[in-house]
């Protein structure tokens, strides 16, 4: 499968792309994700109704030609609300992952690079943090300090960075022993240059994979908080909040639970399949034949 005559440095990534395109679940996931992302991003342009437009006379109506996904109790178009809800869910998903990425990569790289006692102390801290009931703290934070969306990113990001830091550290430790790093040290490159130019490009593979797998976890955590009434505040809405509203009235209005649930599940499916595919593609050892 791999052609031996490739010499340039991008061949690893070209091979990875080739392997990825052969993984049907990952490709389908990728396209589903793109479609959902584009639809959510373009919500103000393509949504059939205004986000907050109510039609109290109509009330909750099942899916039909005028409202494809039906309306909620206040007569608001569900398709519109799912599209806008997607904006918030994706925003939280990506931003909180970015927060965890920044903390995790910095922490892991420094810990792995410094090694010795610094490394031992930093990893011990992570061990202690693992035993910390973080979700409980996020809940307390959200309850007591208001349901501020920026706080939400930071809180979720602060929960998810631990595993990232561990993975990066492991990568850095193995890379550190490679000769080209020693060569860079011997040539007198400064610490931050070694980290930026040599270490980070080489740990990119695991970072991409783990990021793809962290986004769905983060989105799930946001939805979980929203479900408990601790996420974003009405009238703002995320898929988690829509599911919560749907679950409250599912006995009469099933569509209010099904469609937001479906949107969330398809997104999580796509991200997980894509992440699995990326892992198989970027790590040839785990790839099937």
């Amino acid at each position: 499968m791999m052609k031996p005559d490739r010499k340039n440095g991008t061949s690893l990534y070209r091979d990875a792309v080739y392997r990825l395109t052969k993984n049907r679940a990952a490709v389908v996931g990728f396209f589903c994700l793109i479609v959902l992302l584009v639809l959510s991003a373009l919500a103000p342009l393509i949504a059939p109704y205004s986000f907050s437009a109510q039609d109290l006379a109509l009330g909750a109506s099942p899916p039909g030609p005028r409202h494809w996904l039906g309306t909620d109790i206040l007569g608001r178009d569900l398709l519109t609300r799912v599209l806008y809800g997607g904006q918030i869910s994706f925003l939280v998903g990506f931003s909180a992952t970015a927060v965890s990425l920044v903390i995790g990569v910095l922490y892991g790289t420094v810990s792995g690079y410094c090694g010795g006692k610094t490394d031992a102390a930093m990893m011990r801290f992570i061990d202690i943090m693992y035993a910390f009931p973080f979700t409980i703290f996020v809940i307390i934070l959200m309850v007591f300090f208001g349901r501020n969306i920026v706080l939400l990113f930071c809180a979720i990001g602060a929960v998810e960075w631990l595993t990232m830091a561990r993975i990066i550290r492991g990568q850095v430790l193995t890379l550190k022993k490679q000769e080209y790093i020693e060569a860079a040290v011997a040539m007198g490159l400064s610490l931050h240059k070694i980290v930026l130019r040599h270490l980070i490009p080489n740990v990119l593979g695991p970072i991409i994979v783990y990021t793809t797998l962290t986004i769905p976890q983060v989105m799930l955590l946001e939805a979980f908080l929203s479900f408990l009434g601790l996420g974003v505040q009405p009238p703002m809405s995320s898929w988690g909040l829509l599911v919560k509203e749907g679950a409250d009235s599912m006995e009469q209005y099933w569509w209010l639970l099904i469609f937001p649930g479906l949107a969330l599940s398809i997104t999580l499916f796509s991200l997980n399949f894509l992440g699995d595919g990326l892992r198989d593609a970027l790590d040839p050892r785990t790839a099937k034949d």
Partner: peptide, 16 residues
Amino acid sequence: AGICIPTFVVGPLLAL
């Protein structure tokens, strides 16, 4: 599917 369909969707659906 078990990983991707959140508890709070599965729960109400099962209840329903």
